[in-house]
């Protein structure tokens, strides 16, 4: 079965989702990522969804789960690059992903993670 690659960049892990994921692939990603965070002691997880044309409640839940699990493993999750149409639809669907941090692009997401690592500003306080 296909797997979504997880790249390590310094203290962070980078996942770029480029395919229209079927549900098993999403579940596999959740598992792989948990194992990888534990193995690498990563402090941050960047999930780039700029290629995704939709995020339904299943993918939304996956993002929420990843954020919750990584929080427990002392890593922060930043979802980056959500498209406007996807964001509007997600809000209409009733999902606001309050547990997930967001950034416009990978660069900004990386800055967020680095800020927190350097102890600059309370990362978790950025979003209420």
């Amino acid at each position: 079965m296909d797997r979504i690659p997880i790249l390590k960049m310094g203290d962070a892990l980078l996942i770029t989702i480029q395919v229209d994921m079927h549900d098993r692939l999403a579940l596999a990603l959740e598992e792989d990522l948990t194992a990888k965070i534990a193995a690498t002691r990563a402090k941050g997880v960047l999930i780039d969804i700029s290629s995704l044309e939709i995020v339904d409640s299943f993918i939304g839940r996956m993002l929420d789960n990843i954020a919750a699990v990584s929080r427990m493993l002392d890593a922060d999750t930043v979802v980056v690059g959500m498209r406007p149409a996807v964001a509007i639809t997600l809000v209409e669907l009733g999902l606001s992903l309050t547990g997930v941090k967001t950034a416009l692009n990978v660069e900004r997401g990386m800055l967020l993670i680095q800020k927190r690592l350097r102890g600059l500003g309370d990362f978790s306080g950025r979003r209420s």
Partner: peptide, 8 residues
Amino acid sequence: AAARLMGA
């Protein structure tokens, strides 16, 4: 809420 999801 939508802007927040995009990171703004």
